[in-house]
């Protein structure tokens, strides 16, 4: 059974949910091997990766992997590929994940498929394109399939692997050290689930009418254990931080449930949420295009509908 490399996404040493999804997907394709790139590797991380199926864990924990943009990571994965000839490489479809995939494709003379929502046993990938209107099956015809997969495409399953650690000596070339990270600014993070990975997303748009209005959105999100999202109108106005923007130029989300409040449904917004499984809409304009996506919609003022909704959910939980 060939090895399937899964590039680990982590935040401060904590393995992200999307990686567990990719390990589960990898187990259906071959023998999952996790690839850890950067500092922060720990026993806890090893235990999590093993629990979700990693038979091998390639560890390259050199600081240089985090100090320079993308190129050292692609180089290190290419070095591993030269040694193990994997069946495929799975990478999370984040902005950086896609860049790693792109560079790796050139280095290893391999085809690359981005934003897959499923991968079959023969490595045929399913993509949902043009805002979800078309379903495409694609395959890599040259080299090793390099596939970036959207978060929330697979339900992660506990299935312990062997978890054998394999150290990878990182020799980052000078050429890969061209773009140096000199500072890092982390905008405040709350205790909510991460936007791209959350099972439920509650979003607010221009209709929320100010930073204060987002209190109503956050309260609903918290009652559901959801992440908060925003339209560009709301992030541009400074009502909510930019990294919570959903859409073409923000995050792509594909949750089980998306609740859009005071959002008209411009095409750039829909591009980032159209593959949500269930969509609920609150908007006072019955003509708002977002209603075309709604499984359930209420035409009304969000400032009366949303608090009532939150209160009712809290009541049922009690």
């Amino acid at each position: 059974m060939s090895e399937i490399l899964v590039v680990v996404e982590q935040n401060d040493g904590t393995v992200k949910k999307v990686t567990l999804e990719l390990l589960t997907l990898a187990a259906s394709l071959g023998s999952p091997s996790a690839v850890w790139l950067g500092p922060g590797y720990s026993d806890t991380a090893a235990a999590t990766l093993t629990e979700y199926g990693a038979d091998k864990i390639y560890v390259s924990d050199s600081g240089e992997l985090a100090d320079y943009v993308v190129a050292p990571k692609a180089e290190t994965i290419a070095a591993i590929m030269a040694d193990v000839t994997p069946g495929a490489i799975l990478i999370a479809s984040t902005a950086e994940g896609k860049e790693i995939a792109g560079r790796l494709a050139i280095k290893t003379t391999s085809g690359v498929i981005t934003d897959a929502v499923a991968v079959a046993a023969d490595f045929t990938a399913t993509q949902s394109v043009f805002g979800g209107s078309t379903i495409v099956s694609s395959a890599v015809t040259t080299g090793t399939p390099i596939i970036t997969v959207r978060p929330n495409s697979t339900a992660p399953q506990v299935k312990p692997g062997a978890g054998t650690r394999v150290d990878v000596a990182a020799t980052v070339s000078d050429a890969a050290k061209g773009a140096k990270v000199t500072g890092r600014t982390v905008a405040q993070k709350g205790g909510r689930p991460e936007l791209a990975e959350a099972a439920i997303v509650v979003s607010g748009g221009r209709g929320v009418n100010g930073a204060e209005g987002f209190g109503v959105i956050e309260a609903l999100a918290d009652s559901l254990g959801a992440a908060v999202g925003a339209s560009r109108a709301a992030t541009d106005a400074g009502w909510y931080p930019h990294q919570f923007q959903v859409g073409q130029t923000g995050k792509t989300v594909s949750p089980q449930l998306y609740i859009a409040n005071g959002i008209s449904g411009a095409i750039q917004h829909r591009a980032g949420m159209q593959t949500s499984k269930t969509v609920v809409v609150v908007n006072k304009d019955p003509e708002a295009p977002i209603f075309e996506l709604a499984d359930f919609g209420v035409v009304g003022d969000l400032f009366s509908v949303v608090p009532q909704l939150t209160e009712e959910i809290e009541k049922r939980k009690a």
Binding site: S133, V136, P286, F296, V299
Partner: peptide, 30 residues
Amino acid sequence: WTVVSAFASRPPKAAGTVVSDEGTGGEQIV
């Protein structure tokens, strides 16, 4: 280095239910 082996239009989403808020919109969503 990649090939599209098949594609299809996603069947249009069945129209959802849209109601007008008459004071119980939130409850209806629940």
